Lab assay of single mutants.
Amino acid sequence: HNLTITQGKLFFHYNPKLCLSEIHKMEEVSGTKGRQERNDIALKTNGDQASCENELLKFSYIRTSFDKILLRWEPYWPPDFRDLLGFMLFYKEAPYQNVTEFDGQDACGSNSWTVVDIDPPLRSNDPKSQNHPGWLMRGLKPWTQYAIFVKTLVTFSDERRTYGAKSDIIYVQTDATNPSVPLDPISVSNSSSQIILKWKPPSDPNGNITHYLVFWERQAEDSELFELDYCLKGLKLPSRTWSPPFESEDSQKHNQSEYEDSAGECCSCPKTDSQILKELEESSFRKTFEDYLHNVVFVPRKTSSGTGAEDPRPSRKRRSLGDVGNVTVAVPTVAAFPNTSSTSVPTSPEEHRPFEKVVNKESLVISGLRHFTGYRIELQACNQDTPEERCSVAAYVSARTMPEAKADDIVGPVTHEIFENNVVHLMWQEPKEPNGLIVLYEVSYRRYGDEELHLCVSRKHFALERGCRLRGLSPGNYSVRIRATSLAGNGSWTEPTYFYVTDYLDVPSNIA
């Protein structure tokens, strides 16, 4: 807008934040220059609390790290170098490059900038070799853009010569660093050979998330399962459950009422301010606690030095998902009996873990797994792929695949051998790939016309006998059925096997 004052003059007093240069501009645009008398524009009460600059400061050096910015700028000295009290560095987070010096300023003089007072450097006698002032900004957020400017702080001049310097606002972004852990990993099994893994992005990506790394490792069953005799009275049979499938998407929606109208769909109840505040506090606490764990609990591995020492970490090797089922080394339970199943799973520490690289999504279907087997899954978020990966501390989750139908069934015939004193040795093959492992066998036998009897055969007993022995049988026709019990439950009964026990007292003698 054009402003013209045809008559009258300007009068400025007691404006401590208004620089004289701005008042002189007002004289020019209003056409009143030359009308004012000496005392109409006070030299001592206008701009006496402001830094009124008329020179431009330029930054000469900028260096960044993930949490620091090192700045240096060209030296500046007023005509009387004693008038320079120091520099004021202003900075704040700036997602967009549209910041002005006066953003967030209120009537009390406060604003949204963080201000650092910096002492002037030592003055050199040689004007050509003056030290460049600077400042190291610490405690910054990774991968965050900051708006920065600097200006001088000078003393009051009796001659009211307006001098000083100020830089333009520059924008500097800190470097990326390792992201925080992925949030809320959930693993479920939808079949006997697959596990579905879902997660949420890290709360602090500290860069642009480029991919996720998912490692999985087959877990050995508890050692007590191999040692305890679950045929003993009072000892509860062990059981394991597989990871249940995901709930429906509708039930997972946030901010939804727990109660549904019987007449149909209901609208979600909005969260109160107290609920939102509580969630923010919980989120802040979780982030602080995660940072504490990362800094205190997890110790970084030592990389190899120039002395030739090897990095103890196993090298990563990509495998196809079809090879995942046989990740671990199978060892027989008892070496003397080769027909026992290889369900003991000690994992070799030198073995390469299978892994998958996930790009542009937060889910993965891990296939080719062994049925009813526990897996430990390790999830890392990465925001750099080359020249070397920059990934987060791992988040861990466990899951067990679903049982395989008929995996616990005894394959092959049940054979028998009759000894003296009416002892019958029953023999059968253990299931080759049971659900988890076989903890015991149930032997059901009966003599024709009598009630059915049951015998429990422990895992250890089966390994020693290759089956079991029935003792003290009365003469007669017998039928026997056997079924295995694994961590997933009972298998199917075998087809009945028949044998006849004679009275050993009636056996004919070869003595003449």
Rank of each mutant, 00 (worst) to 15 (best):
Y448W: 14
S458M: 07
G322R: 04
C231I: 02
R446L: 12
F298T: 06
L235Q: 04
S243T: 08
I276C: 02
A335T: 11
G306K: 13
D408F: 00
T210N: 15
L453Y: 00
T272G: 09
T241N: 15
K271G: 03
Q256P: 08
A336R: 05
R240E: 09
I438R: 02
D506R: 12
Y445P: 03
T497A: 08
T502E: 10
E310N: 13
G308C: 11
H461Y: 07
P245R: 05
Q380L: 13
A336D: 11
S444C: 14
Y212K: 00
Y230C: 11
K406A: 12
K271V: 03
N422T: 06
L505K: 11
G374W: 06
A335F: 08
E388L: 06
K253P: 07
T415F: 07
L440D: 02
L455T: 12
E221N: 08
D385E: 13
N421W: 11
F499A: 04
R318G: 03
C468M: 13
A336S: 10
Y212S: 07
C269V: 08
Q219P: 15
P431C: 11
L369M: 09
S363G: 12
S257K: 04
Q256T: 08
E249K: 05
E452Y: 14
L455M: 13
R390C: 09
N421P: 13
S239N: 13
R400W: 09
R400V: 05
H454I: 06
K406P: 08
S262V: 13
N477Q: 12
S367A: 08
L440N: 00
R318Y: 04
V414W: 02
L379N: 04
G207D: 02
V397A: 11
I366W: 05
G308M: 14
A336K: 12
V331S: 13
V397K: 09
D291L: 03
G234T: 10
H454P: 05
Y498H: 12
G264Y: 14
T333Q: 12
R459P: 06
A263S: 13
N295R: 01
Y478W: 10
E260L: 11
S320V: 13
D323Q: 09
K460Q: 06
S305V: 09
C266I: 07
G436A: 08
V443D: 03
L213M: 08
V414K: 02
H211P: 02
Y212V: 10
S320N: 11
P338G: 12
D204L: 15
H461M: 12
S509N: 14
G472Y: 10
P300H: 08
Y259W: 09
V297M: 08
L235H: 07
H416W: 10
F215Q: 13
D409Q: 09
L228A: 08
D503G: 14
H416V: 08
E420N: 15
S243F: 11
R319Y: 10
S398Y: 13
R370S: 14
G472N: 10
H461V: 13
H454G: 15
Y259T: 12
R353N: 12
V331M: 12
A263L: 12
E224H: 15
F215A: 13
L426A: 00
P338M: 12
R400G: 07
V443S: 00
E495R: 14
S509F: 12
P338K: 06
L232P: 05
A263P: 12
E290W: 02
V345G: 07
S492F: 11
E249R: 04
V424M: 11
A463F: 11
F215W: 00
L505D: 07
N360Y: 10
P496A: 12
K278G: 14
L293V: 04
V296R: 13
E465R: 12
M427D: 07
V457L: 14
G476Y: 00
P496I: 06
Y375F: 14
Y259P: 09
R370I: 13
G325A: 11
N255Q: 07
E350S: 13
M402R: 03
G306W: 13
Y292S: 03
M402I: 07
E249C: 10
I418K: 07
S444Q: 14
L453V: 03
V329T: 06
E451Q: 14
L225H: 07
S284T: 09
W216P: 07
R481Y: 09
D506Q: 14
P332M: 12
R313I: 10
L237Q: 06
G489H: 07
A335R: 13
A335E: 12
F372C: 15
C266L: 08
S203V: 04
V297A: 04
T340H: 04
A381F: 04
L321T: 11
R316M: 13
L470E: 02
C266N: 10
E362K: 09
L228N: 11
P244M: 15
P338Q: 10
L437H: 03
A263R: 12
W216Q: 12
K317L: 13
S474F: 10
K432G: 04
Q429M: 15
L293S: 02
P349T: 13
G476P: 01
E281I: 08
M427W: 05
K361D: 07
P403L: 03
L277I: 09
I438V: 13
R318K: 12
A309M: 05
V359N: 11
Y375C: 12
T328F: 14
E433I: 15
R240S: 14
S341H: 12
D250W: 04
G467Y: 15
Q256C: 04
Y441C: 00
S479T: 14
F499R: 02
H425M: 08
S239M: 11
L237Y: 06
P270F: 06
L232T: 12
C231L: 06
V424R: 09
